[in-house]
Structures are given as C-alpha cells and as structure tokens.
C-alpha cells in the first residue's frame, strides 16, 4: 500500500542537543544517544507496563536488550532525554526498508505531561532531517489522545488506514529532485 505523506515539510526542527526546564522545573537535556544498550535497558526495565504500546517495549530484560540492539543499528537515529545522569525519555527512527523511517517515543511515567515529549520528538525529527531522512511514519492506538495530539502538533497528519491503530506520517524534506 502506498502511504500519503503531507505536502508540507514539518518543522523544520533544530537537531539536538537542546536543554530546557520542564513544566516541573526539572533541568532536562536532550542529546543524540551513543551510550549503548546497558544505560537504556535500565530505563526500560523501570517502564510501567501500562505504558507499553503494541508490544513495545518488550516485558523481559533480555527481550528489551535484543529490541534495543535492533534500534542501535546503522542508519537508525536515537535521541535521549536526560534528567541529571538518568535517561528518562527515548525517541527513535528506524528505516523501514522502503525509503522512510518508523518513529517511536517513550517517556518514563513520572516525566510524562511535562512537555518533554514535544521537545524530544522535535529533537529527533531535527536529527533525522540532519541525517537526510525525508519521510517518517508511526502508528498509535486510536484511544491515545495525548500521543495523537503530540504527533499532530509537530506536523504529523493521519494517513488513515482504517485499522485499529491510527497511522500518521510527516515529511522532513522536499523529495530529492527527479
């Protein structure tokens, strides 16, 4: 099936790093991630099972590690939000083998609703654009209004497939000249 992408370019957003105070006055830093599986595996082990979406993050630590290894392969883009020394949010772009990337974002429960998701996803899209990625898509559960609103705010549009999950897409660059 062919996915329709918006005609207009989202953002464009600045790539990381970025630092800011969240709505609870916590200093948050967002950087590209290159620290390996261990650090983020720790964050995902602490993840509230009710915040899982469509089977990710996986439940067991060995599954989390295998899943993360896949996200850290070449051509993937990873940015992480830090509160002091602790990773508290992660956003990732994974090539789909068809010229676009799938996006996912996770923020630890105590840090949700504080504006971190928006900063994190903007930084991710900025990083992806910097890396030459043109098109991004995601799926989200239809009942997840907070996530859907976040995606809309940063430039994603519904590419409605009529499935359980809502599919959305954004354009990061104009198509390369033919």
């Amino acid at each position: 099936m062919t996915r329709e992408y918006p005609a207009t370019v989202a953002g464009p957003y600045e790539p990381p790093p970025r630092t800011f105070l969240d709505r609870e006055e916590r200093p948050i830093a967002i950087r590209r991630y290159a620290e390996g599986v261990d650090t983020l595996a720790g964050m995902y082990t602490a993840f509230d099972p009710e915040d899982r979406a469509q089977g990710i993050p996986p439940a067991r630590e060995d599954q989390i590690r295998t899943w993360l290894e896949g996200l850290f392969e070449d051509d993937c883009v990873n940015v992480v939000a830090w509160h002091d020394e602790d990773p508290i949010g992660h956003a990732t772009l994974v090539p789909d083998g068809k010229g676009a990337c799938e996006l996912a974002i996770f923020v630890l429960g105590p840090y949700q609703g504080a504006g971190i998701g928006t900063e994190l996803i903007e930084a991710l899209l900025g990083a992806g654009r910097e890396d030459g990625i043109e098109r991004v898509w995601l799926t989200v559960e239809r009942w997840n209004g907070a996530a859907t609103a976040l995606y809309r705010n940063v430039g994603f549009e519904s590419t409605d497939t009529g499935n359980f999950e809502l599919e959305m897409a954004a354009r990061l660059r104009e198509d390369a000249a033919e």
């Binding site: 469509q54 990710i56 996200l71 994974v94 789909d96 799926t139 999950e165």
Partner: peptide, 15 residues
C-alpha cells in the same frame, strides 16, 4: 505482523 520498530500490527482480516 511486526513493524520495523517491533510494534505488533494486526492485519485487517484479524481486526
């Protein structure tokens, strides 16, 4: 099916 990121996506028939 599983998406590139590992998300489970039900097919339209299953739905």
């Amino acid at each position: 099916e599983t998406s590139p990121l590992g998300k489970v996506q039900l097919g339209s028939i299953s739905e």
